[in-house]
């Protein structure tokens, strides 16, 4: 069971209360980009074994999206931060 403390409402939330949003920091390109750049944006993800930056939503709680650094092997949550914030942990692994 993945448990994450939502940085907005401060509640510890269970997997049931959360929605997974895939890899974080995928920038949406302008319409003018090449077909290849656009399809990369649509489909290509890093899908690592290990440290992964991703989006989660406190969907059954306060409804807010936030970012998480998770180890995809152990499910350990290394950091959680709001969209308007910067993560120390994320910068270190980047």
């Amino acid at each position: 069971m993945i448990l994450i403390r939502c940085p907005y409402c401060g509640e510890l939330r269970t997997e049931d209360e959360l929605t997974y949003g895939g890899e974080a920091n995928i920038a949406r390109p302008a319409e003018t980009v090449s077909d290849e750049a656009w399809t990369d944006y649509l489909f290509m993800r890093t899908n690592p074994k290990g440290i992964h930056q991703e989006q989660w939503c406190c969907s059954a709680g306060c409804g807010q999206w936030f970012k998480v650094v998770r180890d995809t092997v152990s499910h350990r949550i290394l950091d959680v931060w709001k969209f308007e914030e910067v993560s120390q942990a994320a910068e270190e692994v980047a």
Binding site: Q55, C57, G63, W65, F83, E84
Partner: peptide
């Protein structure tokens, strides 16, 4: 509704 909210928060805050 969730789709709207996600884009508002993550792409167009």
């Amino acid at each position: 509704a969730a789709w709207f909210e996600r884009w508002r928060q993550t792409e167009w805050p």
